[in-house]
Design a protein around this nucleic acid. Structure first.
Length: 414
RNA sequence: AGAGAGGUGGCCGAGUGGUCGAAGGCGCACGACUGGAACUCGUGUAUGGGGCAACUCAUCGAGGGUUCGAAUCCCUUCCUCUCUGCCA
């Protein structure tokens, strides 16, 4: 959630920031109004309650002194009636505010480039030169068929479209990649954790998936539970509603989890192959940090993900997202895009974001700095999307006959 | 899943209708004592919101109710523990 006090005091500045993210001023004005309404509704309510509390305390005295209480009771009853009305107004204002506030995306950093969509993203650098083929490189689904690596049909049979089955060497490579990623992350100081793959609505609200993006989530029927769309949810919310001590920060976490996404709104995109699935494996990094250190940690996370791709010998580029392409919770995001020679394109394989205090405010994650409780900064990033890495290896390491070489660093894992 | 017990501050633990945001202890922070430390003594020590402030509202797992007044009584729900069942 954005800082509503900041919004109130610096409306024009806030408005300019959110414009970059595609939020029009009217929406922000609405939020501002509701925040003001709530404050206006709360003031008389609290005053009335204070009066009631004062009067109620008198009862004790009256009783002890044997005084008559009928008159006092009549006064309190009148006050109570007034409170009921004020309470209804305040509650309405509160609910109206929450509705808008929880749907408002994070402010982008000032450094975020202006732009409407991914076409306006800025390539910062390329890492590794794509290899030149002396034959026409195939796409991963063609290679999958030649090698019997991916069973698309039976994945669909077992569940539905956008599910697939990895077989034999592919299944082993999936597992090898997970182990490799976790090992690298652990060496960089991330604590490996193993988390529930199903989280409740409070947690999904904490990281920003709810209430706005419920349509993207698989919900457990009849329960307040959702399949996680990313390990960012359980890892960040590990400290939901906690106050940490400054000395335990930064907290660096990594976990392998499957991720479940409905991909609502992606109908027709990447229907072929394994790029966009309802279920995919990912190894995630999450960091909780003091505000002053989050930029540094962000850089480290980008470097780490890039380094993993380099170790795998996969050409990629580092891209800074423009305001219009930023996710809901992100203040700044860098994507890593891996080269897919079969598609002749760079495709997203990692996305690293600093959400500043946006998620921390929602999830109530603070740390104690002397006497003050301060919101932490939360960061998250993939290191890496496993299925897409598998695809990238298939396409980049293919031979003319369709066979696939194993990257050197993976050999000890297979 | 069925039966019983219970959920209070960082932790332990009192509190069964008013003076309780909450005794006491531990822990922690600061100060005194010490050459330094332990011990001892003193002070402080929940969270969120409103207000320049004095101050004030809310919170004793969560939600609702009774009452002038609820940590305390009632209902619902979640969680934990024990026993039974089931199971990797």
């Amino acid at each position: 959630m954005i800082d509503l006090k900041y919004l109130q005091k610096n409306f024009d500045e806030a408005s300019a920031k959110l414009l970059k993210k595609g939020v029009d001023t009217a929406t922000l004005e609405n939020l501002h109004e509701r925040f003001t309404s709530l404050k206006e509704a709360n003031a008389p309510l609290e005053e009335a309650k204070a009066e009631q509390n004062r009067m109620s305390k008198l009862f004790g005295e009256y009783k002890r002194e044997g005084k008559d209480m009928a008159e006092l009771k009549a006064k309190v009853d009148a006050k109570k009636e007034q409170i009921v009305g004020l309470q209804a107004t305040a509650r309405e204002a509160e609910e109206a505010l929450q509705l808008v506030a929880l749907a408002m995306p994070n402010f982008p950093d000032d450094s975020v480039p202006v732009g409407a969509n991914e076409d306006d993203n800025i390539e910062l650098r390329k890492v590794l030169e794509p290899r030149t083929f002396d034959f026409e490189p195939k796409e991963h689904w063609a290679l999958a068929e030649i090698n019997g690596w991916i069973d698309f049909e039976r994945g669909v049979k077992l569940a539905k479209s956008r599910f697939s089955v990895l077989r034999g060497e592919a299944a082993r490579m999936e597992r090898a990649l997970i182990n490799f990623f976790l090992d690298v992350n652990r060496q960089k100081g991330f604590e490996e954790v193993c988390v529930p793959f199903i989280n409740n609505s409070t947690m999904l609200q904490g990281t920003g998936q709810l209430p706005k993006f419920e349509d993207d989530l698989f919900k457990v029927e009849g329960e307040d539970l959702y399949l996680i769309p990313t390990a960012e949810v359980p890892l960040t919310n590990l400290y939901n509603d906690e106050i940490l001590s400054a000395k335990e920060l930064p907290i660096l976490l990594t976990a392998y989890t499957p991720c479940f996404r409905k991909e609502a709104g992606s109908a027709g995109r990447d229907t072929r192959g394994m790029i966009r699935q309802h279920q995919f494996d990912k190894v995630e990094m999450v960091a909780l940090s003091i505000p002053e250190k989050s930029d540094e940690i962000f850089e480290m996370m980008v470097e780490n993900a890039s380094d993993i791709l380099t170790q795998l010998g996969l050409p990629h580029r580092v891209v800074e997202l423009c305001g219009g392409d930023l996710g809901f919770s992100a203040a700044t995001t860098i994507d890593l895009e891996v080269w897919l020679p079969g598609q002749n394109k760079y495709r997203e394989i990692s996305s690293i974001s600093n959400t500043r205090d946006f998620q921390a405010r929602r999830a109530k994650i603070r740390y104690k700095d002397g006497t003050n409780n301060i919101l932490v900064h939360t960061l998250n990033g993939s290191a890496l999307a496993v299925g897409r890495t598998l695809i990238a290896i298939m396409e980049n390491y293919q031979n003319e006959d369709g066979t696939i070489e194993i990257p050197k660093v993976l050999k000890k894992y297979m």
